[in-house]
Design a protein around this nucleic acid. Structure first.
Lengths: 225, 225
DNA sequence: TGATTGTCTTTCGTCTACAGTCTACGGCGC
DNA sequence: GCGCCGTAGACTGTAGACGAAAGACAATCA
């Protein structure tokens, strides 16, 4: 028996580079979300290819994918341009996010077991620590993990995939704004955990809806300044 | 002035072939949804390319897009395989569809003007005719148009795009089943128009939820036979 | 002076070719 | 006879090259 002769996870599955297109995709997504590539900017394939040290082909495939996910606009015979978010679109995205997250909360309240609750509480504790320490980046990351875990508990893969897409784009628009709404957010998270633990679907839905609506309002409040 | 010297719509904007990848995409989607390519089947790039009379490149890009939209699974270094739908996934898709459509109905009830209502009623009339004439294909197409119009009236482009994706996949799973649930569906549509015309958001939401839940149940009832 | 047209550059869209990897099959040893 | 290894085939992943369309700019003519 092979497994007996090896320590548990000693075989790291031989880190293979993986398809280039995926790495290019991730690299570009990183560049876009960090605003290194600004909205409206023209992305020249050969430039990107040269810059990343690959040929144009993987770049094209990555751009294709970014296009279908709404990150770039692919104008025929003209090239790729970083998508320019509008106020209206941001609002629509936040609306859809509210919808998806609220449903996830409802399903999670129906499905969650004690193990899941414990994970949520662990994230909550870390989140509160991060806020206390003014570690904004960690707090933001933990916020994402919190919502992702609720998605996980909801047990609907299709819903999770849609929400993940929407969420990343929301965060793109929203990140410059989110840095302020720290502590209040985690207080709301705490209530939500209680509702889920109590299997109170209605309450969990309502709390999540209010929670995401808060972020929506704070987005609008900010954008007017 | 140029426009004066030419009849109104005499310039058909020179129907350009459009990017090959898009046409390949549509061709493949057609082949998949019509079951000409069966779930699980291995799609060989060079074969498809030869069959469609293009090179591998556009085929690859089309497969990329189909992959991100969930139609094919792209296994690294192995190729593309038509996605195999599972019972669980179909159920999740139908759940999400219910969610999205219900929200659309709510928004439509808030936004709809008399022009929109008229369009809905026109589609309804055509739909009832098609059902009377046992023209199932037309009825199915009109059903799609009905839901699309409600999406349109909802005025949320993000929601519409997500729903369109989900809807096509739902229809893929569901089409073999849907051929029976003809008349009842249009009766429900009629009630929904009334609710939207009355700007009754709650009722419209509830009706749409029940409506899509009906199709979900009929899917399950069928799948057990 | 203004519009129009011709040319030129840039960039995309597509094709062909080559290298890497996975799968299947046949031979070899036990 | 059974299992392992090596080899061959097929397919994907990537690179490089060519043709074509779109936009910019300057020259020409009314």
């Amino acid at each position: 028996m092979l497994s007996a002769g090896l320590p548990q996870g000693a075989v790291p599955r031989l880190e293979r580079p993986g398809p280039l297109r995926d790495r290019v995709y991730e690299a570009l997504l990183e560049l876009i979300t960090t605003r290194a590539l600004q909205p409206g900017q023209h992305l020249v394939e050969s430039e990107l290819a040269g810059h990343l040290g690959v040929s144009r082909q993987p770049v094209r495939e990555a751009l294709q994918r970014l296009n279908t996910e709404g990150w770039v606009d692919l104008r025929p015979a003209q090239g790729a341009f970083v998508h320019e978010p509008t106020e209206e679109e941001a609002d629509q995205l936040l609306t859809v996010r509210t919808l998806l997250e609220a449903e996830a909360a409802r399903l999670a309240a129906g499905n969650a077991d004690s193990a899941g609750i414990e994970v949520l509480e662990a994230i909550l504790a870390e989140g509160l620590n991060a806020v206390d320490a003014d570690d904004v980046d960690t707090a933001v990351a933990l916020n994402a993990r919190f919502h992702a875990k609720i998605m996980d508990l909801a047990g609907n893969a299709v819903l999770a995939e849609l929400a993940a897409q929407v969420d990343r784009r929301v965060r793109w628009y929203y990140t410059p704004v989110a840095r302020q709404r720290g502590e209040q957010s985690w207080v709301e998270h705490r209530e939500m955990i209680a509702a889920i633990a109590a299997h109170d679907e209605q309450l969990a839905t309502r709390l999540m809806r209010e929670h995401t609506e808060h972020t929506r309002r704070s987005y609008h409040a900010r954008s007017k300044s």
